[in-house]
Every structure is written in C-alpha cells, then in structure tokens.
C-alpha cells in the first residue's frame, strides 16, 4: 500500500487550440495539503477535474489511488473523493437539508450524518429553508458540507473560501488542519493567499497551463532565492555596521527615525544577521521571510518575463 494519493506524469490537456495544461507532473501523499495557485485560466480547475476523472488527459499518465480515475470501473473510487466545484449553485427549490440528503444517499451515507454535517458548517439554523434563499456564503458552506459527505480520503476544493466571512474562513482552515491530522489529503486552490501557508504542506504554482514550481514552502523559498527582508532599529551610530554590511554587498535603507530595512540575500543571510547582532546599538529586529504571496509573485512574474522575451 503506497502512500501516494495521486500522481500526474507529464499530463497535458487541450481543448482544440487551448492548451489548458502542458506536461504537468505532480504528486500528493497521504495526509498532505496541496495548495494549487495560479492566475485566472492557469489550469487549476482543469487539474482538479482531471483528478476527479471528469475529463481525460490528452496525454500523460494520471493515477488516483493507483487507478485511472476516468475509467468506468473506477466509480467506486469516487466514494473516497470529495469535491467542491467553483461557482456551484444547488437545487434552489429544495431545502439545504434535502439537497444534502440527496447527495448523501447517492454516496450511501445515512441521513443521520446530514444533520451533523450541516451543523459542522454552521447551517444548523437554516436546514429547512430553501437553498434559493441562501446567501452566497451559506451556499458555499452547503457546498463544503457536500464535499465532506462520507469522510472522503481526498478532498478537492476549488476556491473554498470565496464568499466566506472571516470567522468562517478561519473555521474552514481549522477544519482542514483537523482533516489533515486524520490522514485526509486535500487539494485546494485559492486566490486569497495571506494566511494560507500555515495550512498547506506543499504549493504548486501554475501559469499558462505549465507547472512553474512545486514543493514545500521552504523548498520554494530555496528555489526562488528571494532575499530575507530585515527591519530593525539602531539607536546610535550605524556607520561601522553599514561598512561591514557593504563588504558583503548589502545596502541598508533608512526608514523614518532610527528604523532601517535591508534585504539579506538568501545565501548570505546568516552573515548579515551575525553582523547585525554584533552591533551594540541594535535595539529591535524583525525578520520577514518571503511568504507565499511574494513567492507566487516571483514565479508568476518570472514566467511572464520569459513569455515576453520569446
């Protein structure tokens, strides 16, 4: 029994002239959370549909739980999958409870679970109301409850936090952490990056259908080689420090008052920090490693630059 939940090998998907995905290789292991990032039309939803077996790759190899997800005999495989599509609107004339009961029965799950799920996503007060009267966030919550039916082993969530209020978003990521602890694997794509990196194990950045980079946040940082941003305050003379720093090629920018900022290159950041700490006048220091947003901007920008060069 391997730990691999899905693996894509050089998968491409084309629709006529549109190359939605080109030679994408990606893997996910049990209990990992993968963040799928990319601009509009980068191929995120297409990747999810491929994993779900809704569409077939034009070329390349794709296995989900060691099976071909689009094969007819893989329909039992779908018991293990949970999916939240982007912009889903449910049956407006049914109540939230009826919608969820329908989907639960299709997965062979008893009704008792439905109430629990609705409560879990905070819809307990609206179970009898028609879905047509739900607000956007409430529909999104219903969609989430739907994806969680039957304790899936792999969750594919397409922009799960769209429309959720801040508390619901926090609850959502709390839930993701819980699921991950239980060994559930999750693929989620989101355009709202701040705060996401704590909850994902790996990120895959797509651009124009190509995989620009993938790996853990640390691996991505190493790959990107972005500088460590250091901010601090020096109460006193800074000439000696500036001189020492300039030897290793780092310039110190003065901010207002005694505050300063500098960009420590990825390779030499420890040298810079040692230099800083030697200075007796240093009264405050704050480190700001490249976050998911800056990493995304870096890889996306790089690919755009290459695009214009060609």
């Amino acid at each position: 029994m391997s730990d691999t939940v899905f693996s894509m090998q050089r998968v491409s998907k084309t629709w006529g002239q549109v190359h939605a995905l080109r030679d994408v290789s990606l893997e996910l292991r049990k209990g990992q959370v993968l963040g799928l990032l990319g601009h509009n039309g980068a191929g995120k939803s297409t990747t999810m549909k491929l994993i779900l077996g809704l569409i077939r790759p034009s070329s390349g190899e794709l296995k989900v739980f060691d099976h071909d997800p689009s094969a007819v005999e893989s329909s039992h495989l779908r018991l293990k999958l949970g999916y939240l599509p982007e912009n889903v609107s449910f049956y407006d004339q049914l109540s939230g409870e009826e919608v969820l009961t329908y989907f639960a029965r299709l997965k062979g799950i008893e009704r008792r679970q439905v109430a629990l799920l609705l409560e879990r996503v905070g819809l307990a007060h609206a179970v009898k109301r028609r879905v047509g009267t739900y607000s956007k966030g409430m529909r999104q919550r219903l969609g989430l409850a739907q994806a969680l039916i039957g304790e899936p082993r792999l969750l594919l969530l397409d922009e799960p936090t769209v429309g959720l209020d801040p508390m619901a978003t926090r609850d959502f990521y709390g839930m993701i952490d819980e699921l991950r602890a239980k060994g559930v694997s999750v693929v989620l794509c989101s355009h709202v990056l701040p705060g996401v990196e704590r909850h994902i194990d790996r990120a895959a950045i797509l651009g124009q259908g190509q995989l620009l980079a993938s790996g853990s946040i640390d691996e991505l940082r190493d790959m990107a080689g972005l500088p460590l941003m250091v901010r601090g305050r020096i109460d006193g003379t800074r000439d000696a420090l500036e001189q020492r720093l300039s030897q290793s090629g780092v310039a110190l920018t003065r901010l207002n008052g005694n505050a300063f900022e500098l960009a420590a290159p990825a390779g030499g950041k420890l040298d810079v920090l040692r230099n800083l700490l030697q200075s007796p006048d240093l009264t405050d220091i704050e480190l700001d490693p490249p976050n998911l947003e800056t990493l995304y901007a870096h890889f996306d920008g790089q690919s755009r630059k290459q695009e214009t060069l060609q």
Binding site: L52, L54, R78, V88
Partner: peptide
C-alpha cells in the same frame, strides 16, 4: 449550467 451535473458525475454512479 447550474454546476450540479459536474458534482453528480463525481459521485459513485455511472
């Protein structure tokens, strides 16, 4: 058009 077909097709039925 309302997106439920996509969802139904991910359920364990042909």
């Amino acid at each position: 058009q309302q997106g439920t077909l996509l969802l139904l097709l991910t359920y364990p039925m042909s």
